[in-house]
């Protein structure tokens, strides 16, 4: 498959990149690893006039601790996260999510964490070649007025299948965006619009430059779970991230996230609240939270990924439960004196 014609820009630093994005706002796409963008360009899902390559922006390739935060540059390749002691020690959920993106032999060396965060929402009826799609009228995500995933839907029902986004939301990340007009930092929930047609809150002239994660304290733990048919090169049919904090034998804080359901990873407030205040041995509370997670996620799911809808709905509860249980184990490992579980 050939790529559409495009002009290639190579900014030497972040300032130049932002100027190019501002100068060509709406007509330029940011090229980091390209493992998602190039495919979508080949399929003519996006035809930017300009590609702004980030290959010289080594200043955005870092993982370091800044006081109570761990900050990750947006252009950091996935392999660097996998090999980072900071990430392995504090965020096993993120380490696992990154390991499961694409395939270890390939995407990890090209793919970047910022690129994975910005992964476009996907749908079986949209992520197809131009020829495949030419047989019928365009869908909502393709500027049309039809949804092939759900009859009579007035909006796009594509799903966010990014493993990185699901994990980062569970970990309470903030996303730093920059443009020539200045910078802003959004809680990750606000970085996603929840709208399939345009799932990211980034403006066309904005560049994601950094991801900030709070360093977990004592008694905190996190876990990521992903359901796929294949063990590599597969998107999540449904995924879950849990972050929990335990104090004196009781759960004092919880964030439960389901991915692969809606146009944004879903931060499930009600399901999380079912855990707060409960004893760490309370198996019933975990079941209740998982049930609530399934109810909530089911409302967003339609039959548009590579598995039946009913199976994905059922498995959303299973993924949620596994994530909570593993996170809980890690909380307990983390509060034992001297012990820290990877």
């Amino acid at each position: 498959m050939r790529l559409p014609s495009v002009e290639y820009l190579e900014p030497r630093n972040v300032k130049e990149a932002l100027e190019m994005l501002a100068g060509h706002a709406g007509q330029a796409a940011v090229l980091a690893g390209g493992t998602d963008l190039i495919v979508r360009m080949k399929q003519r899902l996006v035809e930017p006039a300009f590609l702004v390559s980030l290959k010289h922006l080594n200043t955005l390739n870092y993982i370091r601790r800044e006081k109570s935060l761990i900050v990750i540059g947006a252009v950091t390749p996935l392999i660097s996260l996998l090999e980072s002691e900071l990430i392995k020690a504090h965020f096993p959920a993120l380490a696992k999510a990154v390991r499961l993106i694409g395939a270890p032999s390939i995407q990890h060396f090209r793919g970047t964490i910022g690129g994975n965060l910005c992964l476009q929402t996907r749908c079986l009826f949209y992520n197809q070649s131009a020829f495949w799609r030419s047989g019928r009228a365009p869908c909502h995500k393709d500027q049309g007025k039809i949804c092939y995933a759900e009859e009579n839907s007035d909006r796009c029902r594509s799903a966010n299948q990014s493993d990185g986004a699901c994990a980062l939301m569970g970990l309470g990340a903030r996303v730093v965006l920059n443009s020539t007009k200045g910078g802003r930092s959004l809680p990750i929930e606000e970085f996603f619009t929840g709208r399939g047609e345009r799932p990211l809150a980034a403006e066309p002239d904005e560049l994601v430059t950094e991801i900030r994660l709070p360093v977990p304290g004592e008694g905190e733990g996190n876990s990521f779970q992903k359901l796929t048919y294949r063990s590599a090169i597969d998107y999540a049919l449904v995924s879950a991230t849990a972050w929990l904090a335990v104090k004196k034998g009781k759960i004092s804080g919880a964030r439960l996230v389901i991915g692969g359901a809606g146009a944004s990873p879903l931060l499930l407030k009600e399901a999380s609240e079912k855990l707060v205040g409960k004893d760490v041995r309370d198996k019933h509370a975990v079941e209740e939270a998982a049930k609530q997670a399934r109810n909530h996620a089911s409302a967003f799911m339609v039959d548009n990924l590579g598995s039946t809808l009913e199976y994905r709905k059922k498995m959303s509860a299973v993924m949620a439960k596994r994530a909570v249980e593993e996170a809980l184990e890690r909380c307990l490992g983390n509060s034992a004196p001297g012990g820290r579980k990877g």
């Binding site: 014609s5 290639y8 996006v46 393709d142 990211l200």
Partner: peptide
């Protein structure tokens, strides 16, 4: 046709003949 947030290629770039080759 504009798709996603990328408004697509401007008129002057239509056709691959206008694409600058790079060494």
């Amino acid at each position: 046709m504009p798709r996603e947030f990328c408004a697509g290629r401007p008129e002057r770039l239509k056709g691959s003949d206008r694409m600058k080759k790079i060494p």
